[in-house]
Amino acid sequence: MSANTAVVERYRNSFLKEVEANVEEGQWVKMCMQCGVCSGSCPLGPAWDHPPQEIFMMIRAGKRDEVLTSSSMWMCTSCYNCIVRCPRELPITHIMHGLANYAHRLGIAPKNQPTRKFAKLFWDNLSKKGRVNELKLGIALYFMNGLVSGIKTALKMAPLGINMVKTKRMSPMEYFGGHGIKDTKGLHAILKKAREIEAAKMQKF
């Protein structure tokens, strides 16, 4: 490291470095020019405690806990509006997914955040048999906040479920077995290996 680089490094806060090293597309964060087009373009904009442009500035300001424990990134609907409108072409949607994933991985994302819970249910559901079982996913979703609220939700959702069954877009039989791929063993091996490679790349901060 040259003397000059060493001086520069001292002035870079470590949370930005951490995001650049460990968060998907994190190397883009420093490119944000704070115009706010992303925040104005987000369909759930008003629901974010800190809209994307604020998150980017908070990362640069080293506000690690405030960013990673925020529910903000979990408001992303993956509509990609921010991506196509960003004048600097930051892959904002992916950075938000990356931040959410990183906070979840570290175990400091808000515990009862519904989208965090649902995203985990979704992944567990699809990776088990290689394809999504919509019925089991729906039932798991209704009951993700416990039995009592689950029964309430299930009752509220019953007419919708009946409509789906009537139109053959859902089948109670999916609960027993259901769709899946043949080579689940191979898929599980692929995912295990991918996780190992990714875990090995994570840098300590």
């Binding site: 998907e24 993956s78 997914h97 990356g98 959410a100 994933n101 979840h104 991985r105 994302a109 989208t115 965090r116 649902f118 995203a119 985990k120 979704f122 992944w123 567990d124 699809l126 990776s127 290689g130 394809r131 999504v132 791929i181 043949k182 080579d183 898929l187 692929i190 995912l191 290996k193 991918a194 996780r195 490679i197 990714e198």
Partner: peptide
Amino acid sequence: DWNCCSASIGYAEGGELPRLAL
């Protein structure tokens, strides 16, 4: 024998590489 792509909600539990692998 195609599998699920994990859509745009698989990101929380599935990191970048597992999702790309799918």
